[in-house]
Computed example of a mutant assay.
Amino acid sequence: MTSKIKATSSKQLKVTPDEPSDDLQQLGENNSLENNPGPSKKLLHGRRKRYAMDVSNAVYNIEQKINHFLKLQHERWQAFYQEYSHQFLTMVVMWNIDVDQVKKHTEKLSNILDEQQKLFQEF
Rank of each mutant, 00 (worst) to 15 (best):
Y51A: 06
P17K: 13
S85A: 09
G46S: 12
G38N: 10
K108V: 02
M94Y: 13
L119A: 03
E83K: 14
L24M: 07
I97F: 00
V55P: 01
D54H: 13
A58H: 10
E29D: 11
K104C: 05
E63Q: 14
D98W: 15
V99I: 13
Q78C: 07
S110G: 06
E122D: 12
D54C: 05
Q121A: 15
R50K: 11
Q117D: 12
N61I: 08
D114P: 01
D114H: 12
H68C: 03
Q87N: 05
D18N: 08
D22A: 12
L24Y: 13
M91A: 13
Q116M: 08
K42A: 12
E115C: 11
T16Y: 03
I112S: 05
L119S: 02
K118P: 01
Y84D: 08
D114M: 11
L13T: 09
S21P: 02
Q26T: 11
E107V: 07
E34Q: 07
K42S: 09
V92P: 00
Q64L: 13
K71D: 00
V55F: 03
S10N: 13
E29S: 01
E115F: 15
V59R: 09
A79I: 09
Y84P: 02
H86M: 09
P17H: 06
V92Q: 08
E63P: 01
M53N: 11
F69V: 02
K71N: 02
K104M: 09
